[in-house]
């Protein structure tokens, strides 16, 4: 459990981090280290250099701007969990944060690190998809903004290029009811399946619904067919049953020693149903 040799440099600004990325071959960003350090120790990854961004204060913090929550990529899970702003503006994020790992992990691991890592069993990707977060990526030629739906390209893969940095995440902040339900792997505590759901309803009619699922497949996804089946309809237990029962249609689920594909598909259906039930009281 000793990493291969690497150089280390702490950056103190986004510009410095980008400059280091540009000027060093095979450099990697180090945020909370909760995914990267284990991989280094196992020598699964052997970068020549680590650029520590945890000391860049501008990457850290939560604020509200034009009805949106702006969360710095270096904000820790714990900071999100404890934020009254988040609790008010995004019940979904507030419900998810305390379900990540344990307190120690949450104190170190970051929102941005988790999204950039794109672990198939990670929790945040589901929330980012469900709230249609905008991810701001800084690079040599300024910044670009990517919607969550375009951000994840596959297992452990995103659109962030090797010389880029995820700087902040923008989340709608009008307090839309939302919830994250997680079936924890008994060993790792990661999501066997996790579902992030937001829904509004008015006079017994469903307004907007978003349903995103992590853990079930190599990359988190939105259950669009189920969303369509619900949007605009009158709330009823039957409707929710029906929509949830198709939430896993056509999925090619992951399989491991804990949970074969068929079980993951079952969890998707059950958990989508339960999340909808909690939000829509049916």
């Amino acid at each position: 459990m000793h990493p291969a040799p690497f150089a280390y440099k702490a950056a103190h600004s986004v510009e410095e981090a980008l400059e280091l990325l540009r000027s060093h071959e095979d450099a990697k960003i180090l945020a909370g280290g909760q995914s990267l350090i284990p991989a280094l120790k196992l020598r699964l990854t052997q970068p020549a250099m680590l650029i520590d961004i945890s000391k860049i204060s501008s990457l850290r913090g939560i604020r509200r701007e034009n009805g949106k929550l702006i969360i710095g990529s270096g904000t820790t899970h714990r900071e999100i969990e404890k934020s009254s702003l988040v609790a008010e503006a995004s019940p979904l994020l507030a419900s998810l944060a305390p379900q990540i790992g344990d307190v120690q992990v949450r104190h170190r691991g970051t929102f941005g690190g988790s999204l950039a890592h794109a672990d198939p069993a990670g929790d945040w990707p589901a929330a980012a998809l469900a709230v249609d977060a905008e991810l701001v990526i800084a690079g040599a030629h300024g910044t670009r903004t990517v919607h969550a739906s375009d951000f994840f390209t596959g297992m452990l893969s995103t659109v962030i290029n090797a010389d880029e940095l995820l700087t902040e995440i923008r989340v709608p902040g009008e307090g839309t009811p939302g919830i994250y339900l997680k079936h924890r792997n008994a060993a790792s505590g990661y999501a066997t399946v996790g579902v992030a759901v937001t829904a509004t309803h008015n006079h017994g009619r469903i307004g907007t619904v978003s349903i995103a699922v992590t853990g079930a497949t190599p990359v988190a996804f939105r259950a669009s067919a189920a969303e369509h089946a619900l949007t605009g309809h009158a709330v009823s237990a039957h409707l929710l049953d029906e929509a949830a029962s198709h939430a896993a249609d056509g999925l090619e689920c992951l399989s491991d020693i804990h949970a074969p594909a068929a079980y993951r598909a079952q969890l998707v259906k059950v958990m989508v149903r339960r999340a909808l039930g909690k939000l829509l009281h049916a």
């Binding site: 008994a186 060993a187 790792s188 020693i257």
Partner: peptide, 24 residues
């Protein structure tokens, strides 16, 4: 009763080779 199991595949690979897969 509920969680722990050392799992090998048929070639003798230990699949529950870390705390990520062995559930204490």
């Amino acid at each position: 009763a509920l969680w722990e199991e050392a799992v090998y595949d048929e070639n003798g690979q230990l699949l529950s080779g870390s705390l990520m897969d062995y559930a204490i």
